[in-house]
Structure formats: structure tokens, C-alpha cells
């Protein structure tokens, strides 16, 4: 009986979704509404409006900057939630007692793996920097660079066995880095208010100002994303 009801509910929901899909325009249909109003305007004016040659970046950081701001806050909130949930039950008062040294990992990392990761790490970091810097002109940008850098940091932490007890950067700096995305957006909002009279507006003058704001956002999203990914990993691994 329950299985029958489940199947019935799934069939009804599926039918509704398929009916909705049938009403959508064909993928890539040039006559679809999205291609006649919004996209046409962005393709025609995107470069002069934002000064970015990559229209995906223009949409993400200028036309749809509020959405991107929301996404950045969401991943920041995810880290905050993990920190709250996984916080040690009875944390010792700061500066009173050092936490006991963590037990050695069950499997010592192999020297071969460590060597290869250390060999590849600079190239991965360079790729992340390229993706961040060139996101303005090529596919890529802050989010992509952030996840590549974050994955590299997690990989290095796994191989080197570094944990919360040997942080790469001091804890105070790590907090600011983890909040880099929302902070960059806050700065961009202030700049927009002062320079363009609108929150998240891009200043029209000077010409390099728009590039600077976009680069600031990309840097904030990238560094913040990487710090958040590493923070999630370290927090979940615990001591």
C-alpha cells in the first residue's frame, strides 16, 4: 500500500514536471524570450557597461551581483554552521591549556604521494591564479579559482597530515580570510554608493575603477572560497 502510494505520488510529480518542461522553449531556440530581451541587451552593452570582456563575469559580478552576493553569504553561512555544530563540547578557556597533541594518523602518508603532490602543487596554484586573474577574459573567475585553490589546500592537508593544531595562517587571519567574500562585497557596495550612487553600481569614472572593483570581488570570492573549503575540511576532521 505504501509502495503504491509512493509510486503514485512520484508519477504525479513527474507528470507535472514533464508537463512544465514541455512548455519551455527548445534549448538554444533563438526566439526564446530570454534571448530576445535580457541576453540581447547584455551581449550588446555588456562590455561597455562593465568593462569586462567575459560576459559570464559581467553577468555574475555586475548585472546579477545581488545573486552572487547571496551565494557568497550562503557558503560563508555553511562554514559558520559547521563550526557551530562541530564545536568542541567544552572548549577550554583561550590561552589556559594547550590542547593535547593529536594522535598520529592511522596510516602514515606515503613519501611517494607527498613528493608528487609537492611537485604538482605549484602548478595547481599557478592554474588557480590564472583562472582568477584571467576570469575577466577567459572562462573562469573567483569561484572557480577559489575551489581549485581550496581543493589544493585540502589535498596538501590530507597528504601532510596538517590539522587545526598547525594552521597555515594564524587563526585571527584565517577568520578574516574566511569572511573575505562578504567583506569584498561590502566594500564594493560602499564604492558603488560613493562612485555610482547605487549599491553595487560600478563607477563610471575613472575607467580603471570598474576593473578594480571587479578584481576586488573576484579576489574576495576566490580567497574566501578557498579559506572556507579548507576551514570546512579542518573543522570536520577535528583534532
Amino acid at each position: 500500500m505504501r509502495r503504491l502510494l509512493t509510486a503514485l505520488a512520484l508519477a504525479i510529480v513527474g507528470a507535472v514536471m514533464l508537463a512544465g518542461l514541455a512548455g519551455l522553449p527548445r534549448p538554444g531556440d533563438p526566439a526564446a524570450p530570454v534571448h530576445t530581451h535580457v541576453a540581447a541587451h547584455i551581449v550588446a552593452h555588456g562590455v561597455e557597461d562593465t568593462g569586462s570582456r567575459n560576459l559570464v563575469t559581467a553577468v555574475l559580478l555586475a548585472y546579477r551581483a545581488y545573486d552572487t552576493f547571496g551565494e557568497v553569504v550562503v557558503i560563508f553561512a555553511a562554514l559558520a554552521a559547521v563550526m557551530v555544530v562541530l564545536a568542541p563540547a567544552a572548549a577550554p578557556p583561550p590561552g589556559k591549556t594547550a590542547p593535547p597533541p593529536s594522535p598520529a594518523p592511522a596510516v602514515a602518508p606515503s613519501p611517494v604521494v607527498g613528493f608528487v603532490i609537492r611537485l604538482l602543487a605549484p602548478f595547481i596554484a599557478a592554474f588557480a591564479a590564472l583562472v582568477l586573474w584571467h576570469g575577466e577574459a577567459l572562462p573562469g573567475g573567483g569561484f572557480q579559482a577559489g575551489v581549485i585553490l581550496g581543493a589544493l589546500l585540502v589535498l596538501l592537508s590530507v597528504v601532510m597530515g596538517r590539522g587545526l593544531e598547525q594552521p597555515l595562517v594564524p587563526a585571527a587571519a584565517a577568520r578574516w580570510l574566511q569572511a573575505a567574500g562578504p567583506l569584498a562585497f561590502a566594500a564594493a557596495m560602499l564604492i558603488g554608493l560613493a562612485g555610482a550612487g547605487a549599491v553595487l553600481g560600478l563607477p563610471a569614472e575613472p575607467a580603471w575603477g570598474r576593473h578594480a572593483v571587479l578584481l576586488l570581488l573576484e579576489l574576495g570570492i576566490g580567497l574566501g572560497g578557498a579559506a572556507i573549503i579548507l576551514g570546512l575540511y579542518l573543522q570536520m576532521r577535528g583534532h
Partner: peptide, 8 residues
């Protein structure tokens, strides 16, 4: 760009 994010 989405592919990069998905892979990482």
C-alpha cells in the same frame, strides 16, 4: 567554468 567547479 562550471566543469572546473564541478570537478574540484
Amino acid at each position: 567554468d562550471v566543469a572546473m567547479t564541478e570537478a574540484a
